[in-house]
């Protein structure tokens, strides 16, 4: 089994190259299509055509678009992601600073929403149409339909302003702190908000696949043999249902990475999301490119990991 798995992983990793290449092309030309340019964003009210032209020349933006893209691509192969126009710093060092924070936030949210989503789905399925099922469905639907930034602000008002239990924003305390408990206190609200919203899809899907599995013959057999109901649900049914749930968790990884954009802005989390929002509004092309590529690569890799897990869980899936 090891050989085809590794070949599969290798093939998927190779596929990453055209995916990222295509993506970089799309991002580059979408950014080029948005009106306004970095010089205009930097100069603000002082953006006379003359000042803009001078600054664009200094920034190397007076060349044609394909030329700019090729220069950028050539530099990438030498490990040079370029410099941010606005911050005048290496794109790669800005991303390095930010990526860890996003991984902590999105990773925690993903773990939380997986755990709660699976639990909620299982409990719902085992009590189909019961009161608990209905209550869970209601909560999960609220999560799916609630705007992330609004829920985030609500959490801040309750936990930080009214009850003063948790900090309103940031990743570490401004004075003192800086250790793990400090990080966890700052992480609870943003990760909890993000997880609450992402839980819904996993819970709904878990419920559906569990219900499907519970109707199958081997479950009836197990029950007929007198296997205890707990064991039927958690050992037999859940294991079978997990096969179709794991890829969804992979897809939700994309959702939490994307959702982190709003959540990071609301909670002033120093990650890639808030960085991208700022970079787009200031037309900081190279920073947007670098950020999108890193997030896309992370998304592809997480999905690959989900596929590998599925492959291991389910012998029917072929590489």
């Amino acid at each position: 089994m090891a050989t085809p798995l590794w070949r599969y992983v290798g093939k998927r990793l190779l596929l990453l190259i055209p995916v990222l290449f295509g993506l970089s092309l799309i991002v580059f030309f979408i950014m080029a299509l948005i009106p306004g340019d970095p010089a205009q964003a930097i100069l603000g009210s002082y953006a006379t055509p003359e000042n803009v032209a001078r600054l664009n020349a200094q920034l190397g933006l007076d060349k044609s678009l394909p030329q700019q893209y090729l220069t950028w691509l050539g530099n990438i192969f030498q490990g040079d992601f370029g410099r941010s126009y606005n911050q005048n710093r290496e794109v790669i060092s800005i991303i390095a600073e930010r990526f860890g924070a996003t991984l902590i936030l999105a990773g925690t949210a993903l773990v939380l929403c997986s755990i709660f989503g699976l639990l909620a789905g299982i409990i719902s399925a085992s009590r189909q149409y019961g009161l608990v099922d209905k209550a869970i469905t209601l909560i999960v639907l609220i999560g799916i339909s609630m705007p992330a930034f609004w829920l985030g602000l609500l959490m801040i008002m309750l936990f930080a302003v009214e009850w003063r239990l948790l900090p309103a924003s940031g990743m570490f305390s401004i004075y003192g702190g800086g250790d793990l408990p400090d990080l966890i206190r700052h992480l609870i609200l943003p990760a909890g908000t993000l997880a609450f919203i992402a839980t819904g899809v996993i819970a709904r899907l878990t419920r559906a696949s569990m219900l499907e599995v519970l109707r199958q013959d081997f479950i009836r057999t197990a029950r007929a043999k007198g296997v205890n109901e707990r064991r039927v649900i958690y050992r037999h049914a859940f294991k079978a249902a997990l096969v179709s749930i794991v890829p969804v968790i992979g897809i939700q990884a994309g959702f939490v990475l994307g959702g982190a954009v709003y959540i990071e802005t609301v909670f002033q989390w120093p990650g890639m999301g808030s960085m991208l929002v700022n970079a787009i509004s200031t037309r900081d092309l190279l920073l947007v490119q670098g950020g999108v590529l890193v997030i896309a690569a992370a998304y592809v890799l997480i999905n690959l990991a989900a596929d590998v897990v599925q492959f291991i869980l389910d012998p029917r899936v072929t590489a």
Binding site: L153, M157, A160, V161, A168, S169, G170, V266
Partner: peptide, 11 residues
């Protein structure tokens, strides 16, 4: 809104 919340929560 977050800035206002930080102000009110003493941050």
């Amino acid at each position: 809104n977050t800035r206002v919340a930080e102000m009110r929560s003493g941050g």
